[in-house]
């Protein structure tokens, strides 16, 4: 599985295949400055009204803001809402 993912990443880097098709890689969508959707996450590392840390494959997504709320969460996808000040990918 790991080899397959590495192979896919190489192919992505060298081809025109869109990243969205790559399995296991997170997809982060920011709607305006109030909503963030994360697909293919690995769970929450921390949760608070001003900081939410989402584990992704190979990195952590730090979402900073105020009044942050976890609107919904499933095994594959989560959605945050609130005043978003910053998104940071920490590898």
């Amino acid at each position: 599985m790991r080899f397959a993912k590495k192979l896919l990443r190489r192919l992505d880097g060298g081809s025109d295949l869109p990243l969205a098709f790559a399995p296991g890689l997170p997809r982060i969508e920011l709607e305006g400055l109030e909503r963030v959707r994360v697909e293919q996450h690995r769970g929450l590392a921390a949760y608070g009204p001003e900081l939410v840390v989402v584990r992704c494959s190979g990195a952590e997504l730090h979402v900073r803001g105020s009044g942050l709320t976890l609107e919904a969460m499933t095994a594959g996808e989560l959605q945050l809402r609130g005043k978003i000040f910053a998104l940071e990918l920490v590898c």
Binding site: Y47, E71, M73, A75
Partner: peptide, 18 residues
């Protein structure tokens, strides 16, 4: 936060976590 992860993995629908 770990409980929320468990709930997501167990397919327990929840929402509006404040």
């Amino acid at each position: 936060p770990e409980l929320l992860n468990d709930l997501a993995l167990a397919d327990v629908p929840f929402s509006r976590v404040r």
